[in-house]
């Protein structure tokens, strides 16, 4: 289970703290808009969201948020460059068809991007496959192989290599445990790749 503080999940609170007051934010995969609502209330953010499920979108719109029904793969291409200060993709990258295109679009339409995803390099995941010979099902990766929406799993090191390939600057890297708490080692180091349940990254692109 993931803890929450002041009605905001711990990992979302971490993201919220990175967002500047009064900035323009696009939350891709915003669910029912919990993070956007919090940012609007506490940080005077001009927020927009994209969400796949009708239930999520109607809950978000019903609380007055500007959210469209769509997904990262199909809907990011329409936004003009530089339309947002920050584009957030929380726990969604692994479910996109084209993670590279999605990351490129995020850094085209936003000055910076905040991305979090489950780390497939975590020791439990490695052990599960190595010892049991079965695809891992853990507290944070709860799906069976046949019904998972997560089609593009990566480890933290895989992700960093992709950022390097795409010329993306990693401004901050934070290693998180299963509850969304911050782990006391470098978010881009070997310990993170082995012991972090999730990785959280702030990205930008020079020029």
């Amino acid at each position: 289970m993931i803890m929450s503080i002041g009605s905001l999940r711990v990992d979302l609170r971490l993201i919220a703290d990175m967002v500047e007051t009064g900035s323009r934010v696009l939350d891709v995969g915003c669910g029912d808009g919990t993070l956007l609502a919090w940012l609007g209330r506490h940080k005077d953010v001009d927020g927009r969201g994209i969400e796949l499920s009708m239930a999520g979108v109607s809950a978000a719109v019903a609380q007055g948020l500007s959210v469209i029904q769509g997904d990262a793969d199909t809907d990011l291409k329409d936004y003009p460059s530089g339309a947002f200060d920050t584009v957030i993709l929380s726990q969604t990258l692994q479910a996109t068809y084209e993670p590279k295109t999605v990351l490129n679009h995020m850094l085209r339409i936003g000055r910076r991007a905040i991305v979090s995803f489950p780390n497939f390099g975590h020791w439990r995941v490695r052990l599960s496959l190595a010892l049991n010979g079965r695809m891992p099902v853990t507290d944070t990766l709860t799906y069976q192989w046949y019904d998972t929406p997560n089609i593009h799993f990566c480890t933290i090191h895989d992700f960093l290599a992709l950022c390097d390939e795409l010329g993306i600057t990693v401004e901050r890297a934070i290693a998180l445990d299963g509850k969304g708490g911050v782990l006391p080692f470098d978010g881009d180091g070997p310990l993170a790749n082995l012991f972090a349940t999730q990785g959280l990254f702030v990205l930008s692109r020079a020029g």
Binding site: R48, V61, S66, I68, Q69
Partner: peptide, 9 residues
């Protein structure tokens, strides 16, 4: 495309 304030469901 024009960065309008839009909701859609």
């Amino acid at each position: 495309a024009v960065a309008a304030n839009v909701s859609f469901v």
